[in-house]
Structures are given as C-alpha cells and as structure tokens.
C-alpha cells in the first residue's frame, strides 16, 4: 500500500480541531504580515514512520508558545510558566495534530514522541499551513524523510 504525503488540507483540519478542543479558540488562517524572525522561537518535531516516513514540524514565537501553554494549563494571563511547561504544551499540540494526520493517512504508520527545541530551521512559508493564535502565526510543515 502506498501512502501519500499528508496534504495541507489534512494538516489544517487537524489544527482546527486542536484549536477548538484544546485551546477553546478558532484557528483562523493567518493574515500574512511580517514573518517573525524566530530568534525567540520554539520548534516542535514529531516523527511518523512506517508506510510514510517523515516528520511534522511546528514553529512559533516563544511568546505565542507561552500564551498557548497558558491557555492549555488554565494559567492566569500574567502568570509566567516554567520553560518545561511551555515545551510540554507545544509538544502536545503537535502530538495531537500528528495523531490526527496519522489516523487520516491510513496504512501502518507509527507516531513518535514529540521533541521541542529552539528554532533550528526557519519554516519555509510556502510549504507550511499557517494559522493564527491571537493574530500571530503558528506554522506546521510536513517534511518527508530524505531519500
């Protein structure tokens, strides 16, 4: 069985579900503006292996990551969350997006555990699904394995 690379519509649908059910927000498409430089950014990665191999990569500004973590944890607006909690929340967002994508792919594909690091690879805007969180962009890119 050949499994196609997940398309952007599938990823967008998964992000919309996550925004609604985990963040209690609507995932509006991001109105293109100035792209962040991500000097303070975070990047989450999660691997899909099996009949399709590659990873999903989520990139967002650090302040946006903290806001999303706060929404998930029910924190007060001015509460400063530990870095561990912010990384955990961002990783879980991508984990659930990845689970939805994996389920829609069909075939025997396994989902890894998410990892979160400072931004190492700036997202390629044209290849990303970009949705807004309080007006700021959150990028998810499907990255097929090399070879």
């Amino acid at each position: 069985m050949t499994v196609e690379t997940p398309d952007q519509a599938l990823v967008r649908a998964a992000m919309e579900q996550v925004w609604e059910s985990m963040l209690y927000a609507v995932a509006e498409p991001w109105a293109p503006g100035d792209h962040p430089d991500f000097r303070n950014g975070l990047q989450a990665q999660i691997a899909l292996t099996g009949e399709w191999n590659g990873e999903l990569r989520l990139t967002l500004d650090g302040t946006v990551a903290a806001e999303i973590a706060g929404a998930m944890l029910g924190a007060d607006e001015d509460e400063e969350l530990p870095e561990l909690d912010v990384h955990d929340a961002v990783g879980e967002v991508l984990n659930v997006v990845g689970g939805s994508v994996k389920g829609a792919l069909g075939g025997a594909t396994a989902l890894g555990l998410p990892g979160v690091t400072p931004v190492t690879v700036a997202p390629d805007h044209d290849d990303c699904v970009v949705v807004a969180w309080r007006g700021s962009p959150v990028y998810v890119q499907v990255v097929p394995a090399a070879g």
Binding site: L73, A89, N95
Partner: peptide, 8 residues
C-alpha cells in the same frame, strides 16, 4: 506524559 493534557 503531557502535563498540559493531564490538566485539560
């Protein structure tokens, strides 16, 4: 394993 998901 996700604290955020445990909280939700």
């Amino acid at each position: 394993d996700s604290r955020a998901m445990r909280r939700i």
